[in-house]
Structure formats: C-alpha cells, structure tokens
Design a protein around this nucleic acid. Structure first.
Length: 235
RNA sequence: CGUUGACGG
C-alpha cells in the first residue's frame, strides 16, 4: 500500500492521471491524504471536472475533508471558472468551521478573480491578516488580467513597501499590467529592476511580454533591439 | 509520516 500510494503521488505529479486513478482504485484503505494526492493531481493537470465530481466520494469513503481537499477543488473551480460550484464548496467549508489560512485565501482570491469577481477577490485579499509573495502576486495578476493596470501597479508598489520581495511570476503580472495600459517607461524600469534590484534573470516569458508591450505601444525599434539580444531559440 | 497556493502574449 505504501508503494501504491507513492505511485499515486508520482503519477499525479507528472500528470498521468489515468494511471493514477487505476492505482488509486485498487488501494483498499484510502485515507484523506491519498484522496488529496489524487485530487491535487486533477487540479493541476485536469480534467478539472474530475476533481469536482470525485469530491463527494471522499466522505462516502469515510474520510474527513480537510483544507487541502478544499484547496484542490477550489483550484479546479478556478480553472473551470465555475463560480457557483466553487461557492458551494466554500460555504460547505465555512459550515464545517474550517478556518481559512494564507494558502487557502490565496486560492480564493485566484478563484474569485478567474470567475470575474474582482471586487470579491480584492475584499478577501484585504481581509487577510498575512500576505506573502504568492498572495500579492495572485492579486496583482488578477488586476492585470482584468485590465486594471493601475491597481496592479499600485499593489506592486504596496508590496515592495511591505518588504515582500517580488519573484519572476510577480513580474509577469506587472509587465502584463503595463502592457494593457501602455506604461512603457514603467515597464522598462520594472524590467531592469529585476536584475539590478532583485537578482532575477528575466526569462523568455518576460522578454516576450516586454516585446509585445513595446510593439503595441508602437516602439518597434526598441522591440526589435530587445529581440536581437535574446537567445536564438525564442518564439 | 506522505498530500496543498500565484504563471504573460
């Protein structure tokens, strides 16, 4: 059973969900962690609907739901933009008296934002008593994706003031925000600060984002120049 | 003990 559990983990980790499910079903005594392992696999690799439909079977199997279980299904609902389904999970969570923590709140922010409920996401974010680079980045990315570039940028500034260091994913959100708003100067400044302030090497994703931004703003010369400095295997 | 969060065009 230990070997089988490890297999479920490994298959789930690498996205071989059919194999994972096959092994899972042949394990006689499944506990909540094993269920969570499977659900987490579906929440990352899909099909996300599987996480949702398997959820009700967890309790039938005699396992007690925990935070990790809800994280997986809420994450799946986020990917599906399934607002109502996610709200059902959330209210069930509240009814169970489960207290939300930093990770769960980050998922909630992401879930609400992906469902188009930006205000609700911002409300949850504001109500959190603790933030880290992930929760900030989730909110910044949410603003950026909905075209609220200024909110994204100002939240980024706020994050720096709080002493939270941005990472490469944060910058993708910030650059994306600048792209929407045509904030060329700011984008270039942020881009440069990645190296100079945070010792982060920009990836191809960052470069693509910046090139796209420059192109959209009509700065084709600069865009071409940046392109010429990139590794040859760029898209 | 093993399972959990943010990823641009």
């Amino acid at each position: 059973t230990i070997v089988a559990s490890s297999l479920v983990f490994l298959y789930s980790k690498c996205g071989s969900m059919e194999e994972s499910l096959t092994v899972f079903e042949n394990i006689p005594d499944r506990d909540i962690v094993l269920w969570n392992t499977l659900l987490a696999g579906y929440s990352v690799h899909g099909p996300w609907q599987m996480a949702v439909s398997l959820f009700e079977k967890v309790q039938n199997d005699g396992c007690e739901l925990d935070k990790v279980t809800f994280m997986s299904v809420l994450k799946s609902c986020a990917s599906l933009a399934a607002l109502q389904q996610g709200q059902v999970f959330f209210s069930q969570m509240v009814k169970m008296g489960m207290q939300s923590d930093l990770l769960l709140n980050s998922i909630l922010v992401d879930f609400l934002a992906k469902c188009g409920c930006l205000e609700d996401a911002a409300y949850i974010f504001a109500s959190m008593n603790e933030h880290d680079v992930v929760s900030y980045t989730a909110m910044i990315t949410a603003y950026a994706q909905q075209g609220h570039a200024k909110d994204a940028v100002s939240l980024y500034e706020c994050m720096k003031q709080e002493g939270v260091k941005p990472n490469e994913i944060t910058f993708l959100g910030v650059l994306n925000a600048c792209s929407h708003e045509g904030l060329v100067r700011e984008a270039i400044q942020y881009f440069k600060s990645m190296r100079t302030v945070y010792n982060i090497t920009p990836t191809q994703n960052h470069c693509s984002c910046l090139i796209d931004l420059l192109g959209r703003a009509g700065h084709h010369v600069e865009a071409m120049e940046l392109l010429s400095h990139l590794p040859p295997d760029c898209d």
